[in-house]
Amino acid sequence: MMKESHHNTQLRAERGDVTREKLLNSAIDVFGRYGFDGATTRKLADAAGVNLQAIPYYFGGKEGLFIAAAEHLASIIGSHVGDLRAAILTRFAELDAQGAQMTTAEARQHLTQIVQRMVVLFVSEESESWARFIIREQMEPTEAFRRIYGNIMRPMIEMARRLIGAILKDDPASEHIRLRTLSFVGSVLVFRTAHAAVYAQLEWETAGPRELEILQRHAAELVAVLGAEKDRQS
């Protein structure tokens, strides 16, 4: 009987995990489409295919689900670049311990890897609901924005600042590098935030293997031209 009881408890826990995951994934899309006020608990529950009472049971209410969805979104995006980010931060730590600076060539290599991965991610259908959620939070920031920014956006931008600072041989904390980094990030984000215009201009119906290869080459070019003006002047 004890084994059966343990088995039943495990099954309930697994079902609970599945229900929670359904709500989190659906909530990103629903909050992105309708905003916090327009996303009723009924819409949220129906989109996830779960009982209405699951929202207060797992998250304490709609606000708790909203914040949890933001954190879940940050973790999803982070999972796509987490290995690269960890490797680059480890490399920076090694260099810091040696009192050394990352070379321009190495910084370009790391930045290219990140941007190539991100640009492919941004044209994927998977990122559509993420973009709606994040764009709403950019326009009218709430606690959800602070969670997304703090958990994924700020760490990624700060790492890009260090890499771009190494490429341009300038202080990553300087206003100049902050602005260059934001402009650079924007040149990649356009593939999601202006998705329709990008496809219309390129006359693409979808992003298949050929299109993804083109985007990855373009991403490498974006990195390659960083600092080109300094090279011409020297």
Rank of each mutant, 00 (worst) to 15 (best):
A69F: 02
A74L: 04
A68H: 00
A131T: 15
M118W: 02
A70S: 08
R117P: 00
I114D: 06
I114E: 07
E137K: 07
K62W: 01
L65G: 05
T90F: 04
A100E: 13
I88D: 00
L73D: 03
L73T: 08
V123T: 12
S127W: 15
Q138T: 14
F145C: 10
A87I: 00
L121W: 11
Q109I: 00
R85Y: 02
A69C: 04
L65V: 05
E126P: 05
Q101K: 15
G99H: 10
I88L: 00
D96Q: 12
E143Q: 14
R132M: 14
E126K: 15
I77N: 06
F59P: 06
Q113G: 09
I114S: 11
A87F: 00
P141V: 08
T90P: 00
E63I: 03
Q109S: 13
P141D: 02
F133Q: 05
E125A: 15
A70R: 01
G82F: 06
H80W: 08
A100K: 14
R117G: 15
K62V: 04
D96S: 07
T104L: 08
I77G: 08
T142Y: 09
S129P: 08
T142V: 10
K62N: 10
V119F: 01
T90K: 14
M118F: 06
F66R: 05
L84Q: 04
V123H: 03
A97M: 06
R136S: 11
I67V: 13
E125W: 10
Q98W: 03
Q138M: 15
A100N: 11
G99M: 11
I77C: 07
T142H: 09
A70D: 01
V119E: 04
E94K: 08
S75A: 15
I67L: 15
Q113K: 13
E94Y: 04
L121D: 09
A131P: 03
S75L: 13
A68D: 00
E106T: 12
A87N: 02
L95E: 04
G78A: 02
I114P: 03
V81T: 14
L73H: 03
G64P: 03
F122Y: 15
I77P: 05
L89W: 05
R132W: 10
V115N: 13
A144Q: 08
A86D: 10
S129C: 13
S124T: 12
F133N: 03
R136M: 14
R117L: 11
I67F: 07
F133R: 01
V81G: 06
F59L: 04
E140D: 14
T103E: 08
L111K: 05
Q138A: 14
Q113T: 13
L73F: 10
L111A: 07
L65W: 02
Q101P: 11
H80K: 12
P141G: 10
L121V: 09
K62H: 07
G64E: 02
A93N: 11
I67Y: 12
Q113I: 09
E71A: 13
R117K: 12
E140N: 14
V81I: 13
Q98E: 15
S127C: 12
A93G: 06
G99W: 11
V119L: 05
E94L: 07
E63L: 11
G61M: 07
M102W: 01
R108Y: 01
Q138S: 13
